[in-house]
């Protein structure tokens, strides 16, 4: 039961992070390896805003810090796109390398200014509840509905707004999109900002639950990357399914074996999928 609850709540956060990563790949054909960094910045910006701008005020101040953090991370992502990626956006290798360099840079920056130890933010809610006889922290319980809400909002946006349709159009046929007058560059910028916002939301949600250190970005990057490929690079539903799958495997193995073994098993599964089914579990490209 605990596995189910934790698997669901962590899986929903994984999904938030992975969906953005996949979306950017589908639209731009690029892998933004600074995606984990954007997640991490979500947590850090929340901490910064809450402690320094809103002077550790009440719940309202915390909510305001969340919003400011998400907006800030989107702006950072836009800066990253316009300043660094656009230089050679057609080269998947260049974008991977330059985004990694950026990730390393942010890591060092955070180490210098916030130290290597963890940074914490108080939670929106306190206490815990009993769910089917399992004691769960309230802040843990909050993850699933908020993430699901964000995912559904993303789905509605893609499905029903003109901007969302342009994202889908570019992902499915870049040339077709150009020929109806869509500018893929602009759509990619918008997509990167949205993906960053989702990652930042995940980061802010997690910031009160797990420790955030300047090096967590790589852990989350590998998660997002693996989920993206397990789900079939380019498929959003695939990414969501894979996110929950991975989280269940991890939680289940952590409960039955030790922490270390849990991660090892997850890694081995990724290797197996890469080797035996590289197109992912859901192979159709679906955005």
């Amino acid at each position: 039961m605990e596995i189910l609850i934790l698997g669901l709540s962590r899986g929903s956060v994984y999904a938030l992070v992975a969906v953005g990563f996949v979306l950017v790949f589908s639209v731009g054909g690029i892998l933004n390896l600074a995606h984990g960094t954007l997640f991490m910045l979500g947590a850090y910006f929340t901490y910064i805003y809450f402690n320094f701008l809103f002077g550790q005020g009440g719940t309202l101040a915390l909510l305001a810090s969340y919003v400011c953090a998400i907006v800030s991370v989107s702006l950072v992502a836009l800066l990253l796109f316009f300043a660094l990626f656009r230089r050679k956006i057609d080269s998947i290798s260049y974008v991977m390398v330059v985004s990694l360099a950026f990730a390393l840079f942010v890591e060092q920056f955070m180490k210098v200014y916030f130290g290597v130890t963890s940074t914490g933010v108080p939670s929106l809610v306190r206490g815990s509840v009993d769910i089917f006889g399992v004691r769960v922290l309230n802040k843990e319980v909050l993850l699933l509905p908020i993430s699901l809400f964000a995912l559904v909002a993303l789905h509605m946006f893609l499905r029903h707004s003109s901007a969302g349709q342009s994202i889908k159009a570019v992902a499915q046929s870049r040339e077709g999109a150009i020929l109806v007058g869509i500018k893929p560059d602009r759509v990619l910028a918008m997509t990167i900002a949205i993906a960053a916002a989702l990652a930042a939301l995940a980061g802010t949600l997690i910031s009160s639950l797990v420790t955030v250190t300047p090096t967590v970005w790589s852990y989350w990057l590998i998660k997002a990357f693996a989920i993206a490929i397990v789900g079939g690079l380019g498929s959003l539903p695939g990414a969501v399914v894979a996110a929950f799958l991975l989280s269940f495997v991890e939680i289940a193995t952590t409960f039955t074996l030790t922490d270390q073994y849990g991660e090892l098993v997850a890694l081995m599964i990724i290797v197996a999928i890469l080797l035996f089914r590289p197109s992912g579990l859901m192979s159709s490209r679906q955005v």
Binding site: Q165, S166, K168, A169, Q172, S173, L179, V180, G181, I182
Partner: peptide, 26 residues
Amino acid sequence: IVHCPEGRKLFPDLTVGENLSLGAFL
């Protein structure tokens, strides 16, 4: 000047209706 390209370049996972609406994107 509207170009109906070689290979059609439709949006395969969108519905027929959505494809048509995207034609009027601008």
